[in-house]
Each structure stands twice: as structure tokens, then as C-alpha cells.
Amino acid sequence: MIKEFNYKGLLVGAILIVIWQLASLVSQPYLFPPIQSIFANLVEIFTNWSIAVHALTTVGRILLGLVFAFLIGTLLGVMMGMNRSLNDTVRPLLSFVQGVPALSWVVIAVIWFQQVELRIFFIILVTALPNFTFQAYDSYNNISKDLREMLLVFRPKQSQLFKMLIIPSITPDLFTAWKVNLGNTTRVAIVAELVGSTIGVGYQLSSAQSLFDMSMAIAWTLVLVIFVIIFQMVLAKTESTLLSWRPKSER
């Protein structure tokens, strides 16, 4: 099944490349640049340090914001599950934060913060935090009551309860939150970099737009796609390793 899926995916990709290349033969380069031009720009991004630093900066910003959102959100979600009063207080606030469009957060951050890095960090944190928190909260509440009571019979310490019950129970849903937030925050980070930043993929995309350089714009877009795919693979590998104890369904 996996091999068949990969085969079909490669086939669809090859067809799209052929269609794009044919379109480049009958259109202007700023509309449909040839594949070889896009590939040359992609190679230059990965081999020229002065250009690659823009990609690395964006990746670093995304991961830094996600790590902080993950740590704060997981802790807050578990605390909300353990304390009903805290949940009743914080949940409406998080729901409000989650409902604010990402573009609105960009405008708010520009007004609030003068420092660009702090601005981008805040935007990524505030857009990823609610999802991590709600996933941790729901996972905690979905812990089997029978399993919880069985473990409490042995009178475990609080640290043992976290290690043996809570952490294994919430981990699968936290991986889901990582996968969802990765794509969302990547898009948000690019929008944030368009405002005031002089380094990063967003800045490079803005420069390509001002020069009508479609080839470079697509190359930078592919850099983001490659980053997301690679990190998704890392998450999938880590998940399969940490959760190898779970029974696997046969397909």
C-alpha cells in the first residue's frame, strides 16, 4: 500500500512538472519559468551560505516558537485537566486567542513590539499555543478511569503518576498537535517576516515579488515545502519509536 501511494505520488508530480515545463515554452518567464531555472535557484539556495542563512533563520524561528508553545501548552493543558477552576478561567481566553486571525496577530505584534525577532516569536507562540493546550487537555481527560484507579491502588508518587500514566497517555495527541502546528506556523512565520524583517524566507519572497522573479519565488516556496516534509518525517520516525508499544492495525 505504501509503495503504491509513493508510486502514484511520484507519477502525479512528474505530470505536473511536464505540464509546467510545456507552459514555460509558450509563456513569459515571470509567469511560468522553466524547471531548470527553478532547480538552479534551488541549488543556489542550498549551496550559497549568504542565501542559505535566510532559510536557516526562518527554520530556527519556527522551531523556537513551536518548542516554547509546546512546553507551555502541554503544561497548561495538563493543569487545566487537573484543576476545573483553572480550566473554566483559561479556556475562554484560549478560545478567543485561537479565533483571532493570524494576520490580525501580525498587525498587533507590529504595534506592540519594535524588535523583529520578538515580534515573530510572539506571533508563532500565540498561534500555536491554543492547539497544544487543547490537545493536552483533551488527552488528559480521555485517560481511562479504570486505568487511573488501578494505578492509584498502588499509591504512586505524583512523579510516578506522570511518568507511568499521564505522559504516555497524552503523547500520541501531542504528536498530532505538532504535525498540525508545523504547517500552520510555517505559513504564519512567512507572513510575519514580510513585515519589517530583513532576513528570512518571507523577506526573500517579498524581494522576488518586487522583482517579478517567479523562478526564485517558487524556489523559496519549495525550500519551505522541503523543510515541512523533512520535519514531518522526523516526527513520524520519533512517534513510531516512542510509541512502538501501541498495537498496530493490519491493513
Score class of each variant (00 low, 15 high):
residue 41 N to K: 08
residue 99 G to K: 10
residue 238 T to F: 14
residue 178 W to N: 07
residue 242 L to I: 14
residue 73 G to S: 08
residue 102 A to K: 03
residue 165 L to Y: 02
residue 105 W to N: 04
residue 86 L to A: 14
residue 223 V to T: 11
residue 42 L to R: 00
residue 101 P to K: 14
residue 64 L to S: 13
residue 172 P to Y: 03
residue 77 G to L: 01
residue 143 I to T: 01
residue 223 V to R: 06
residue 197 S to Y: 14
residue 2 I to G: 15
residue 32 F to E: 05
residue 44 E to R: 13
residue 131 N to G: 07
residue 105 W to Y: 15
residue 67 V to C: 14
residue 68 F to D: 09
residue 32 F to D: 05
residue 65 G to K: 10
residue 25 L to I: 03
residue 54 H to E: 05
residue 246 R to L: 12
residue 212 F to W: 13
residue 210 S to R: 15
residue 113 F to C: 11
residue 83 N to W: 10
residue 26 V to M: 02
residue 148 R to L: 01
residue 214 M to G: 11
residue 69 A to T: 10
residue 140 Y to K: 04
residue 6 N to G: 08
residue 149 E to R: 12
residue 204 Q to D: 10
residue 241 T to L: 15
residue 199 I to W: 08
residue 134 F to H: 07
residue 233 M to Q: 02
residue 238 T to D: 03
residue 196 G to A: 10
residue 239 E to C: 01
residue 111 I to T: 12
residue 159 S to E: 06
residue 97 V to C: 14
residue 89 T to D: 05
residue 188 V to H: 12
residue 130 P to N: 08
residue 222 L to S: 10
residue 87 N to M: 12
residue 203 Y to Q: 08
residue 61 R to S: 09
residue 8 K to C: 13
residue 108 I to Y: 13
residue 20 W to M: 01
residue 113 F to E: 10
residue 60 G to M: 04
residue 81 G to L: 08
residue 129 L to A: 06
residue 179 K to L: 11
residue 134 F to Y: 06
residue 168 P to S: 03
residue 190 I to P: 05
residue 89 T to W: 15
residue 186 T to D: 02
residue 195 V to N: 11
residue 82 M to V: 06
residue 191 V to R: 12
residue 129 L to S: 06
residue 224 L to A: 08
residue 122 F to H: 05
